[in-house]
């Protein structure tokens, strides 16, 4: 799974202000082994963790304004595991003093009837993809190295095609709002992955 259900605390009053600090980059397939090797050295000593996830992105559109987006994820490797529903807010690029992209983030675990439930609510699936890769941790830092594939036949996760010849690399930390110091740690960690991978804050609007 991209992230374990982080919100262990009960949702009280609807204002859990967890922010996700994010740096993104990519690595070519042929350099993947070097990167994994380096991550194994840099990160907490743990069993290498692999995952294969199917992510469905749902939109709820109004007449004007931005559509509202929710992401539902399920593990292909562990079909019985709960689904993972995630809301991501608008990313804030911020100024130079902050080294990472920041966006609001709500994670919840959900039952397997999540797609039906979202459909009932008026959400429509906009797109889907399959991400397969590895997760590393170093304290609060989380590094996800994954191959993103498009799903050729809707809903059939066996029939997929890699999106590019690279692996997506994401370095993220979940922290309460305003803790910009974590971005400092992220920057120093990202420094150590150079020149294999350049992790940057990428404004998705400009992509």
């Amino acid at each position: 799974m991209e992230a374990p259900p982080v919100t262990v605390m009960p949702v009280t009053g609807g204002t859990i202000n967890m922010m996700e600090y994010l740096l993104q980059g990519s690595v070519l397939d042929q350099a993947l082994d070097s990167l994994l090797h380096r991550l194994r050295g840099l990160c907490d000593n743990m069993e290498p963790e692999s995952f294969a996830d199917h992510e469905l992105v749902y939109l709820l559109k109004g007449q004007q304004g931005n559509p509202f987006m929710l992401r539902a994820r399920r593990s292909l490797a562990h079909p019985t595991a709960p689904w993972h529903l995630r809301y991501l807010g608008q990313p804030e690029v911020g100024d130079k003093s902050r080294h990472a992209l920041v966006r609001n983030c709500v994670d919840v675990a959900a039952s397997h009837s999540l797609p039906d439930f979202l459909n009932e609510m008026g959400f429509r699936m906009d797109h889907e993809f399959v991400a397969k890769g590895h997760v590393f941790r170093k304290g609060a830092l989380k590094v996800v190295v994954s191959k993103v594939s498009r799903v050729l036949v809707p809903g059939n996760t066996d029939n997929i095609e890699p999106l590019s010849l690279s692996y997506l690399v994401e370095l993220s930390v979940l922290a309460p709002a305003g803790q910009d110091t974590v971005s400092e740690d992220m920057r120093s960690f990202a420094e150590q992955l150079k020149p294999l991978v350049h992790l940057e804050k990428i404004d998705p609007k400009r992509v």
């Binding site: 699936m125 993809f129 993103v148 498009r150 997506l168 294999l196 991978v197 998705p204």
Partner: peptide, 29 residues
């Protein structure tokens, strides 16, 4: 020898795909 280990275009494509479904087939029923 500075053999590139990453491709900025790929980075953008991947970030766009994961963030906004760019390049992924839109599948509305």
């Amino acid at each position: 020898q500075n053999k590139p280990s990453f491709n900025p275009a790929d980075t953008n494509a991947l970030v766009g795909a994961v963030g906004y479904g760019k390049g992924l087939s839109k599948c509305r029923p």
